[in-house]
Design a binder for these strands. Sequence first.
DNA 1: AAGTAGATCAACCGCCAAGGG
DNA 2: ACCCTTGGCGGTTGATCTACT
Length: 323
Amino acid sequence: MDVKGRNNNNNNVVMSSEDDEMDLRRGPWTVDEDLTLMNYIATHGEGRWNTLANLAGLKRTGKSCRLRWLNYLRPDVRRGNITLEEQLMILELHTRWGNRWSKIAQYLPGRTDNEIKNYWRTRVQKLAKQLKCDVNSKQFKDTMRYLWMPRLVERIQAASAATSTTTKAVVNNTSSNYINNNNGVKATMGSTPTITSINNEFVSSQPHMTQGYTLENSYTTTSSDSFENNISTISNLGDNNNYCYTSFDNKDNPNLDYYQPSHQPSFSDCITSPSGLFSSQEITDFQFMEPNTPWIQNEDSSNIFWNDETILFLEQQLMNDTM
DNA sequence: AAGTAGATCAACCGCCAAGGG
DNA sequence: ACCCTTGGCGGTTGATCTACT
């Protein structure tokens, strides 16, 4: 991943006069800063971000450190395309909670609120614009619920059916990309530079990094939340048509008549992988799986969902509705 | 090859709530 | 009750990437 963002000009960081006095850095983080932050947190833990920034010797605000850690450096942050299942989950949760991105992110393992927010703004709002209606209008919401989401479920099934026969081969191919031993865990992505954890210390061989993540620790729930006990589980969608999309059970439960639940797996069953393609053991084998895997990037799943055919279809449906 | 427009997403901003003194 | 610090959130920006002409 390239270091990019605001004020990125060969690491020349723009500072306000106030920041200049404070000697605070802004703009894109350097690899050295990342390593400093990661190593400090590995040793001392997170929290008390302003103090942390000072003690770690980072010329950053506590807020900036917190954001960098939560959105980018955290080991369980997952990167890469939003999967079809995740898209469905986002649409579903957004109908329930609106723009409460952090809340939505809680149900998408490894995804940050920032990423979901970006997804929504760039994809969903774009589509609303293409359909010439307001993203918050009833018309658009109905279109999502009754047209997009069922269609998305179909596509998930279709994609899953196509890939299920090659799952094992994929596992074998992908696992060869990793080095995982007792001394260090290394994440690789083609020619992408790496950050390696050796004896609990992060080092970088090249000036960029990729993210590893563990799935099993990245999705948590609490028994006190009745909604979470009835969490919608969007998973196993391609499992011999035995897919499920179990509904929210609260009184303000959205109308989910676009799905056809066939069985109710346990919550943990449904979170081992977004598509349920791998067993728990197979997932465990990928402690540092790269994002570029078939069930994370369903052959550019965004295009499957947002292609011209789909847009045309939706436009026609909307036309019919308004006639 | 160069220019351009649109898409992406890391990072920042401002606001708010919680908690402690 | 008030002030200050901290953490968290949603909204926004803008540098970079990518696709297209």
